[in-house]
Design a binder for these strands. Structure first.
Lengths: 107, 107
DNA sequence: ATTGGTGCTACATATTACGTAGCGTTGCTA
DNA sequence: TAGCAACGCTACGTAATATGTAGCACCAAT
């Protein structure tokens, strides 16, 4: 489980172009979902697990370490929270939520 | 390989909330990379494969079918191209490319 | 001392992705 | 008309990831 960081050739990106490294990081199960659900505020491990529709603790734990390593979230006394960087990313994800609603009407 | 569409409970989303279905679809290897690389213009299968750092044909083919099923791209005489919907999504992905550059400087 | 909550980890199984080889087709060009 | 090259894939074995369930070690309150 290699941590995809810019510069590191990883799964789905041999070049390590920033955008491809980020896509690799976000393109793993629940990565974006975790960021999305954490935007509502800090959460403990188990609470976050519930918000994420009972994702398995294994996956959650691995993902949390990856996202923390990528400086998008961190663990605090209140549980896990987005970093400034993570909130910046969430702000970019947010419009995709709106898009998803329109998209869902096409089916 | 279930196609994640809104309403369908799929991998990473039991509820089928639009955003979660979309995250599931995009959270698969090369899904966002394909959209990103197709934004430069239509491409044949093999050309797209090169743009995506020689992703395996198996993965590429599966992903193309999923994204086409989700109406984000389609096959034309010029090869694969983004649909209007796909270009809309790309426009939302584009700022993430900018973010990725700033992010990459933190390491 | 027990109870209930926490953050995890172990482990077996299932799913997904990869890499390589190569098939069937189409469109040249010799 | 035979040969070749490029096309879009598909087959198939292996490797990497994700899942689900169980439960451990820790802590605080009862």
């Amino acid at each position: 489980m290699t941590l995809p960081l810019p510069g590191n050739p990883v799964r789905g990106s041999k070049t390590g172009q920033p955008i491809m490294a980020l896509f690799d990081l976000l393109g793993r199960s629940w990565a974006m979902g975790i960021i999305w659900n954490l935007s509502e505020g800090a959460a403990t491990f188990r609470e976050l697990q519930e918000r994420c529709e009972s994702v398995s603790p294994t996956t959650l734990n691995v993902r949390l370490k990856e996202l923390a390593g990528a400086k998008l979230l961190k663990r605090t006394v209140d549980g896990y929270t987005l970093t400034k960087l993570g909130r910046e990313l969430f702000d970019l994800l947010k419009p995709i939520g709106k898009f998803a609603k329109g998209w869902s009407k096409k089916f």
